[in-house]
Design a protein around this nucleic acid. Structure first.
Length: 449
DNA sequence: TCTGGGGTCCTAGGACCC
DNA sequence: TCTGGGGTCCTAGGACCC
């Protein structure tokens, strides 16, 4: 990437590589189970409301596609093997591939289990001319097959992420396309606008109504007009990509922004008690994943998809991050109270965002003046319930001793005492969180001193 | 019984603060 | 009493990606 002052310029060499494993989930299944080789394989949800995650090329011949309902896939290709998927196997294979990619260049950006960008400017190469990067890619594809027991990949190389990704689509499966620098516009202009990342069905339809079908037509539209059509951020992005202007860097690590769990049920839910039970279970999974990664979050959300596919969400933001199952589950259930679910619910989900690494994160010394900025208490049915007094109650938890700092919405906020940096970190708990059972009123503290 | 699950980013409006 | 603008945070919804 060339930097000219603040402005980054498109690369002079085809030094971005995009790699896409062919029909990845299905290919892993065929690799591990020889009887499936050469036969149509469909991996995805097998329930009444399942969809196809990956179809092998044999199944694609019958018109089976990703995101198609499994029902439809069955009617198109009844003799295919329908499998639910073995994610640990896919994760293993993906790990092998990513490690191989990192041996080519330290700058590898995985996009999913089966896709990644590689920055070849950081590879050990004599130059970045087309023959050199072509040879590198052929060697990589060969080694990948060996390392994975026969998985194949499609590779594209170009002067940007956009071009590399478009290129990898051009020769599938098991192909390689290098787009020489300077030929990007010739490649793109005849293509449909939907080759541009971010142009999905809704944007394509808006553009179509404005008479814009191809990249060449998109290129002829002014920036102002594009922003008017699709909004500011999107408009700016489309204007640049239509001209093959893409300076997005290859970024190896990205911070997690949210963690969520959702489920679609084979029959619509109408029983509120059952919905609360399911939200509780999901909250536990979310909290477990947060803890596993040392994360906690301030915003708890639920997602509810109704029988008619309309999707609602409700969220609430705490003063301080939590990873507590009880807190997340209580808030999730209380958010459901808002919603009229009479028509039946096909999907429920729980998510946490506004993530923090709570050990390092914030709240050391800020937010000093008020004890309780939490929203007003909602009436949550609780068997064991007491009043927590900010500034008055002391609690003992797995994290040590802390003061009750805020209270509301069925959640207690605790500020922990730490030796070196008072006041210490803050966490939230449900009122009846078992972790808080060792609370002591402040008046009992005299015994300790 | 068309339409999964886990994410990211954007928009728009309102509250609130300066 | 009226009129402001900018910035940030929050919520809800939607588009999109793999």
């Amino acid at each position: 990437m060339v930097e000219v002052g603040e402005v980054s310029v498109v690369r002079a060499h085809a030094s971005v590589l995009h790699i896409d494993l062919d029909a990845f989930f299905a290919a892993v299944e065929q690799r591990d189970k020889p009887s499936l080789r050469g036969k149509p394989v469909v991996v995805g949800g097998v329930g009444g409301r399942g969809v196809v995650a990956t179809a092998s090329y044999e199944a694609r011949k019958y018109g089976v596609r990703s995101a198609m309902s499994t029902r439809e896939a069955r009617s198109r290709c009844p003799h295919a093997a329908f499998l639910t998927g073995r994610f640990h196997a896919y994760r293993d294979a993906s790990g092998t591939v990513m490690a191989l990619l990192r041996s080519v260049s330290p700058l590898v950006e995985p996009l999913s289990l089966d896709e990644a960008f590689i920055d070849l400017e950081r590879a050990d190469l004599p130059d970045l001319e087309v023959p050199t990067v072509t040879a590198l890619a052929e060697g990589l594809r060969r080694r990948l097959q060996e390392a994975t027991g026969g998985l194949t990949a499609s590779v594209g190389i170009g002067t940007s992420k956009f071009i590399a990704k478009v290129a990898s689509e051009l020769d599938k499966p098991d192909g390689l396309t290098v787009v020489p620098p300077g030929t990007e516009q010739d490649l793109l202009r005849p293509m449909h606008v939907s080759v541009i990342p971010g142009v999905g069905p809704a944007t394509a339809e808006r553009l179509r109504r404005a008479g814009i079908h191809t990249v060449a037509e998109l290129e002829s539209v002014s920036l102002e007009e594009l922003v008017r059509l699709v909004g500011k951020a999107h408009g700016n992005g489309l204007w640049s990509l239509a001209r093959a202007l893409d300076t997005r860097p290859v970024v190896p690590e990205r911070e997690t922004k949210s963690v969520s769990v959702e489920g679609t049920y084979d029959t619509d839910l109408t029983d509120r008690k059952l919905m609360e039970h399911l939200l509780t279970r999901q909250a536990g999974e979310v909290a477990g994943r947060l803890r596993k990664h040392g994360l906690s979050g301030r915003t708890i959300s639920i997602k509810v998809r109704m029988h008619d596919f309309t999707t609602l969400s409700r969220s609430t933001t705490l003063q301080s991050p939590t990873d507590s199952t009880a807190a997340i589950s209580r808030l999730a259930r209380s958010l459901l109270t808002d919603l009229d679910t009479a028509g039946g619910v096909r999907l429920l989900g729980v998510g946490v965002s506004g993530l923090a690494d709570w050990i390092q994160e914030d709240l050391f010394g800020e937010t000093t003046d008020e004890d309780d900025d939490l929203p007003d208490e909602v009436d949550v049915p609780t068997t064991q319930r007491r009043t927590w007094s900010p500034g008055m109650d002391v609690v003992h938890t797995a994290m040590g001793r802390g003061w009750v700092w805020g209270s509301g919405r069925g959640v207690v906020t605790v500020r922990f005492e730490t030796a070196e940096t008072p006041p210490g970190p803050v966490r939230s708990y449900a009122h009846d969180d078992p972790e808080l059972s060792a609370w002591l009123p402040v008046s009992d503290e005299s015994d300790e001193s």
